[in-house]
């Protein structure tokens, strides 16, 4: 009786919690199909805001720029973040390790306004000193984004590396493979799923960032969040609802595909294991 009452209470809390998380997103999706410009008055079903979205050249340009920045950022962050994870998990103690691990984890929680301001001041000082980077552009946004997303990559890869079975690496070393070869042939394929996850995480973080990009962007480099922010500041616009719906749909499809691939891989691994045991 007591546990029954407790689980009812728990279930209510969970339903309310999920409703809180998803209610606002659902309301965006529903009202993106609203005919009326007044976002909260239902004027009938329509897809006209999607049409207007596709004709908004400024927004499309910004979206294209943001995608480019996100792809470059994610690639750079995965390379640097993986190296940082290797250093933290495999290299044991060395001088300067405390500072290193501090610098790796601090960007995870650092308020964006501070990171953005600090990076802008760095770019300005560098330009005065060595003449590079000349002005603010896509380059400075990518550099800034790599710096703050790299921390997230490191955390993801680090936990995979720590849980990895090292015996295969050791076997390869015993057979005379050089460290670099061991890394390329054995470690890399084994941590590949976490690298993909980290790449996607860095990609979305970069695509989503408003504050840091606002500080370090130049006149010619307006990203999607900057365009969205300036139009949202003026009030609610149905085009942004349509944009939100497209983003949510893409994310949902992406996650479903990822879950599907994961599921298939797990099954394949199970089959392989069974076959291996059977052949013994």
């Amino acid at each position: 009786m007591n546990t029954g009452r407790r689980s009812v209470w728990l279930l209510t809390a969970m339903i309310l919690g999920y409703a809180f998380l998803y209610g606002p997103i659902l309301s965006l999706i529903v009202y993106s199909f609203n005919e009326s410009r007044l976002v909260t008055v239902w004027g009938g079903f329509s897809t006209k805001w999607y049409g207007e979205l596709l004709q908004n050249q400024k927004l499309l340009d910004a979206a294209f720029l943001s995608l480019k920045i996100a792809a470059l950022t994610a690639t750079g962050a995965v390379v640097l973040g993986t190296l940082a994870a290797l250093v933290l998990v495999r290299f044991g103690r060395f001088r300067g390790r405390t500072l290193f691990s501090g610098m790796v984890t601090a960007p995870l929680v650092m308020p964006e306004v501070i990171t953005g301001l600090a990076l802008l001041l760095l770019f300005v000082a560098l330009e005065q000193l060595v003449g590079w980077p000349s002005g603010r552009s896509m380059t400075t946004i990518v550099l800034a984004h790599v710096t703050f997303t790299m921390a997230f990559v490191t955390v993801v890869v680090q936990s995979r590396l720590a849980q990895m079975d090292r015996s295969i690496e050791e076997a390869a070393m015993d057979l005379g493979a050089r460290p670099f070869k061991v890394f390329m042939v054995i470690t890399l394929p084994m941590i590949a799923p976490s690298l993909i996850a980290a790449w996607l995480l860095a990609f979305t973080l970069s695509l989503d960032d408003l504050v840091i990009a606002s500080f370090v962007s130049g006149p010619g480099s307006t990203t999607l969040p900057m365009v969205v922010f300036s139009s949202v500041r003026l009030g609610v616009t149905p085009e942004i609802n349509a944009l939100a719906t497209i983003i949510v749909a893409l994310v949902a499809v992406g996650i479903l595909v990822a879950a599907r691939i994961q599921h298939r891989q797990d099954k394949q691994r199970e089959k392989d294991m069974q076959r291996a045991y059977a052949s013994e």
Partner: peptide, 14 residues
């Protein structure tokens, strides 16, 4: 994974 900015924006409408 969805946009933070847009999730905040959703609350304006609510």
């Amino acid at each position: 994974w969805t946009s933070f900015l847009i999730r905040v924006y959703a609350w304006i409408g609510l």
